[in-house]
């Protein structure tokens, strides 16, 4: 059967669409011209300037700290949620599933404003703590879905086999369930980490005055700052993302 060339052409166009702006951005980060309209020579000065901006490094530090706490919290809660959803069928789990699923299909801005109003209503001062609470809340759902997907492929007869061979519930959990699910849990944690690092909207609503994270910093740079610096920063972030994606793909492959 002769295959139509249209899907191929569209796929190529889509990939070009995806990468064109990214290439322009990366190229411009090495462009000596301030506005990037034309090429005025190769330079690393924007990267040097970036290294010399302490506020960016400060923001990055905050972002990573928030992400570490958010990842730990959401991985624990998301994993237990996935186990509960996978193992039990009850009214409680129907409600539980709705609770876990809803944050995934609600626009970020609604999550952001509702948390802001919640903290205002409780008279909680906005700070890094409120950001972490907000991040855990939306990351739980993602972790739960990733781990749940893994659990659906999980062969529960292995648990029975372990018990059959004399392993106590605790030994079964430690020696059989956790090692087999570790790649799935790690993939969920990695997703939570990147979501937390990248989040702008929810952070924007739950951050107090003076609080800053990398996305908040980038946003204000886009609004008021110097484009070449953002080019350089974006290129670094892209390199980081690509490495992370590559790593996570390897993790998932190992899980199979």
């Amino acid at each position: 059967m002769k295959r139509s060339a249209t899907p191929f052409a569209i796929t190529v166009a889509v990939l070009a669409f995806f990468y064109l702006p990214i290439v322009v951005l990366v190229v411009n980060s090495f462009n000596a011209s301030r506005f990037g309209g034309e090429w005025s020579g190769f330079t690393l000065q924007w990267y040097r300037k970036l290294l010399e901006s302490p506020d960016i490094w400060h923001a990055l530090g905050n972002t990573l700290t928030i992400a570490v706490f958010a990842t730990i919290g959401s991985t624990v809660l998301g994993t237990t949620a996935a186990f509960a959803l996978d193992r039990y069928r009850s009214r409680l789990q129907d409600a539980h599933y709705l609770l876990v699923y809803a944050p995934l299909v609600i626009p970020e801005i609604l999550l952001g404003i509702s948390l802001l109003l919640f903290f205002v209503a409780l008279k909680v001062e906005l700070s890094y703590v409120t950001i972490v609470l907000a991040h855990v809340t939306f990351c739980v759902s993602y972790v739960a879905m990733v781990v749940l997907g893994r659990l659906q492929d999980f062969d529960w007869s292995l648990v029975e086999a372990a018990q059959d061979l004399g392993a106590s519930p605790w030994v079964t959990a430690r020696d059989v369930v956790l090692p087999l699910l570790a790649p799935g849990i790690a993939a969920g944690a990695l997703l939570a980490f990147t979501l937390s690092v990248d989040d702008f909207v929810i952070t924007f609503f739950t951050a107090g005055p003076g609080t800053t994270t990398l996305p908040l910093r980038i946003y204000s740079m886009i609004k008021h700052g110097s484009p070449p610096l953002i080019n350089a920063l974006s290129t670094l972030l892209l390199a980081l993302t690509t490495t992370t994606v590559w790593l996570s793909q390897r993790l998932l492959k190992e899980a199979r």
Partner: peptide
């Protein structure tokens, strides 16, 4: 008696060998 305390062992349908 829970399974781990029975002097009974099983060959599972798909063998349930630990893949790790």
């Amino acid at each position: 008696l829970p399974p781990e305390r029975r002097k009974v062992n099983t060959i599972f349908q798909n063998y349930a060998l630990f893949p790790h």
